[in-house]
C-alpha cells in the first residue's frame, strides 16, 4: 500500500514537472491550470499550518489553560480579521500598529547591534590579522584589507544620492563623493554580477536536479 501511494506521488511529480517545462513553449492552458492548483494548495496548506500552530497552539491552548492575558492577543487577532471587511477595516489598524511598531524596533535594534557593528568590525579585522603576521605576509594582508575597506566605503558612497542644485546646471554631488561613487560603481557592478551568476547557478542546479529526477524515474520504469 505504502509503495503504491509513493508511486502515485512520483507519477504526479513527474507529470507536474513536464507540464511546467511546457511553459518554455508558451503560456499553455494546462500550465495555467497547474499554477492555479499550486497556489490553491499552498494557500490551503498555509491555512492549516496557521490554524494549528498559531491559532490553536498560541491562542486556544493558553485560553483553555486559564490564562487571561491570552485574551489580549485574541482580541487583537479578532480586530485584525476585521481587515477583511472594507467597512470594518479601520478596526484592524491598532493591531497593525502593534505589528509595525515591534517590527520597526526589531529592525533598528538588529541593524545597529547585528549588521552595523559586526560588519564595521569585519571591515577592520585586517588590522588585527596584519598585526598577528610578520614580514611580507603582514604587508600583503594590510594592502588587501585597505583595498576591501576602500571597496566597502566606496560602495556605501554610491548610495549617497543627494546632489547640489546649481543654477542652470545639472544637479551634482560634491566631486569627492562623485569620485568615491565611481569607484563604488565598479565594486557594485562586480558584486551584482556575482549575485546574478549565483542566481543562474541556483537555477541551473534546479534544472540539474529536475533532469536527474526525470531521468531517474524514467529509468526506474524502464527497468
Amino acid at each position: 500500500m505504502s509503495f503504491n501511494t509513493e508511486v502515485i506521488w512520483v507519477v504526479i511529480s513527474f507529470i507536474l514537472t513536464l507540464v511546467v517545462f511546457s511553459f518554455l513553449l508558451g503560456d499553455i492552458p494546462f500550465f495555467r491550470f497547474v499554477s492555479a492548483v499550486l497556489i490553491g494548495m499552498t494557500a490551503g496548506y498555509m491555512t492549516i499550518v496557521i490554524i494549528y500552530q498559531v491559532l490553536i497552539a498560541r491562542l486556544a491552548v493558553p485560553l483553555l489553560q486559564g490564562s487571561r492575558v491570552a485574551l489580549i492577543p485574541l482580541l487583537l487577532s479578532g480586530m485584525l480579521l476585521m481587515k477583511l471587511s472594507p467597512r470594518l477595516s479601520r478596526l484592524g489598524n491598532p493591531s497593525m500598529a502593534l505589528l509595525v511598531g515591534v517590527g520597526a524596533a526589531v529592525a533598528v535594534g538588529g541593524a545597529v547591534l547585528g549588521t552595523l557593528f559586526g560588519q564595521v568590525k569585519g571591515a577592520l579585522v585586517f588590522v588585527d590579522l596584519a598585526r598577528a603576521q610578520k614580514g611580507p605576509t603582514s604587508l600583503l594582508l594590510l594592502v588587501e584589507g585597505i583595498f576591501f575597506l576602500l571597496g566597502t566605503l566606496a560602495t556605501l558612497f554610491y548610495f549617497h544620492f543627494s546632489a547640489r542644485k546649481v543654477k542652470g546646471k545639472e544637479p551634482q554631488a560634491h566631486w569627492s563623493i562623485r569620485l568615491l561613487s565611481s569607484v563604488g560603481r565598479v565594486f557594485i557592478a562586480i558584486t551584482l554580477g556575482a549575485v546574478f551568476a549565483g542566481v543562474i547557478t541556483a537555477g541551473l542546479t534546479a534544472l540539474v536536479e529536475r533532469a536527474d529526477f526525470l531521468l531517474g524515474t524514467l529509468l526506474f520504469w524502464v527497468r
Binding site: G114, G118, Q119, K121, G122, A123, V125, T191, A194, V195, G198, V199, T201, A202, T205
Partner: peptide, 17 residues
C-alpha cells in the same frame, strides 16, 4: 545557503558572525 545567496552571505562569514 543557495548559490544565489552566497555572495551576500559571505561577509558574515568573513566577519566571524
Amino acid at each position: 545557503v543557495s548559490a544565489q545567496a552566497a555572495p551576500l552571505a559571505q561577509p558574515y562569514y568573513d566577519s566571524g558572525q
